[in-house]
């Protein structure tokens, strides 16, 4: 049986919001150490990898491994009913044919409950090796989102090139071209948190990526910062780390090439 309680239902809401345009259904694999989801888009170009650690839950117990096959349209409907500061308790028995959601207001004066039918999903899983990428860029997620939004109007392919001093995001369209260059810096945002751009380069890198997917993966609500891992001719990794050791949401995107 699985039982997990998140202090904020909004955590799961944001995750589902961020991936629902890429995947329509996926298996949540639950075990003692947490919940994992791996799923590709229908074109097998992009992959979503979600890892939620049991330690990041307020309460968590899973005494037997269970796979929960979830339809994201149904899940979105359920999560829409949660207020942002509600807590969320997830429950499933060992049969794995239903998932139960309980949202509870902070004051405990409102409790809502939803039951969702699960499905059997035959998914192809990929082995993703740990890679030491040539380029690691850490930046504000709002900045990354702004760059993708701005440049998406100019063309379908984003070229990202990085050297030791800077990273350049560029697009060449039919009638116009656009680029944004970022250099390492440190600024203070409105919450007085330090937002820095750091660029670590072992080897100069130049990759071409689908603008449509990048725009979807650029998401400022998931975490304050985002990490981009790049290397010539291999899929790029876009990573969001959740606070309080809850886990990570990774997007892998295959490059464009000749």
């Amino acid at each position: 049986m699985l039982e997990g309680r998140l202090t904020h239902a909004s955590t799961l809401k944001k995750i589902v919001e961020a991936v629902k345009d890429v995947i329509s259904e996926a298996n949540f694999d639950c075990n003692d150490s947490g919940i994992t989801l791996q799923c590709m888009d229908s074109g097998h170009v992009a992959l979503v990898l979600l890892q939620l650690n049991s330690d990041g839950f307020e309460d968590y117990r899973c005494d037997r491994n269970i796979t929960l096959g979830i339809n994201f349209a149904a899940l979105t409907k359920v999560l829409k009913c949660a207020a942002n500061d509600d807590s969320l308790t997830l429950k499933a028995d060992d049969s794995g044919d239903r998932l139960n959601f309980v949202f509870e207001s902070q004051k405990g004066d409102r409790v809502s409950e939803f039951d969702m039918k699960l499905m059997t999903i035959d998914a192809e899983l990929l082995s993703i090796p740990d890679n030491d990428y040539d380029v690691t860029i850490k930046m504000s997620s709002a900045e990354f989102s702004r760059i993708c939004k701005d440049l998406a109007n100019f063309g379908e392919t984003m070229n990202i090139s990085a050297d030791k001093e800077s990273v350049r995001f560029g697009v060449e369209g039919d009638v116009s071209a656009a680029s944004v260059v970022l250099r390492p810096n440190e600024t203070i945002d409105e919450d007085e948190k330090i937002v820095s751009t750091s660029i670590m380069v072992k080897k100069e890198t130049n990759v071409n990526l689908s603008m449509k997917f990048l725009k979807t993966f650029a998401n400022s609500s998931l975490a304050g910062s985002v990490t981009l891992e790049l290397q010539d001719d291999i899929p790029c990794l876009i990573k969001y780390v959740f606070p309080n050791d809850l886990g990570v949401l990774c997007f892998y995107l295959a490059p464009k090439g000749d």
Binding site: A46, E124, L125, S127, A254, K256, D258
Partner: peptide, 14 residues
């Protein structure tokens, strides 16, 4: 334009 590759060209199927 450039051709889009697929992830299976880079990662093995489990």
């Amino acid at each position: 334009g450039l051709a889009q590759t697929q992830l299976v060209n880079f990662f093995k199927i489990q």
